[in-house]
Amino acid sequence: MIYLVINDPNGNEGICITPRDLLAETDNYKLYLGRGENSADALLCRIVKSKAQNGIMYAEKKLLDELSELSQNLEQERIAKQGDDGRKIHYDWLFPVCEQSFSCDATDNRRINTFSVLDASWDKFVPFLKLKNGTKVDAKSAAWVLGRFLKLQAFLDESENCRSLDFNPDMVLIAPKQHRLVYVGWFDELLHGGDRSYSHCDLISKLNIDRMFDAILSWVEKNDTEGEDEFMSWLKRFTGYFNNGLEAHVAYYEFLDALWGKGYHPFTFNKDGVWKNVDNFV
């Protein structure tokens, strides 16, 4: 099989890529699921098609580093206010970690970014749209996915220094069994919105939340389960209502608590190593 080992000039582990590893291709880049040369860990690899976009790749690395820092700061702020009760917000589960960003001869000096995902493996993730287009789900399964969507928006709205994100469902990966959702559309966001006005944030949040509600409404299959009608009605009633992810996230989990009891958690409980919010799998 044809494969290529791309060596990071910074001395990090090489990356093995084969043509079969191609996951997606846009006008601007190719996305591969490569492997660490020695560790064999799955690495998502983005390679731009033109050197002209090397700057955006570096900006993506920078942005993801900033998001990671913001996420940690918000975690610390929460602990400072409420004490360490073992719960973690884990905003950092919603975006990938950019491990390496470099250009080299193998890519004709086009930049390559490699990504891992915290506390999980890319092997478990599938594109949300692929899942959505291939299968319908019950309301309870859809509920956690929407929770993660809203959490991502809440993170962007809570971290005031952060940019506004024009959300693209094509760029959502989910790991159904782990109840994980990761957004990987940061390059595209920088490509199209590097100069987006910060005064647009409210409007963009509103549009994103409405898009999320819409995506979930069209995904759920009616099968007369308990609370299903109320869940759908709530989404329809509040479409167009929220323009801030934090508010939407809080209101949504209050609604879920009232509807189905304490099975849904806005944050992650990792006390005693138990993930308490994984009862409702897709």
């Binding site: 002209a52 976009q53 700057g55 955006i56 570096y58 900006a59 920078k62 920088l190 590097g194 100069d195």
Partner: peptide, 8 residues
């Protein structure tokens, strides 16, 4: 971010 997004 806008600077880095310019075509290099």
């Amino acid at each position: 971010h806008a600077l880095l997004a310019l075509p290099f």
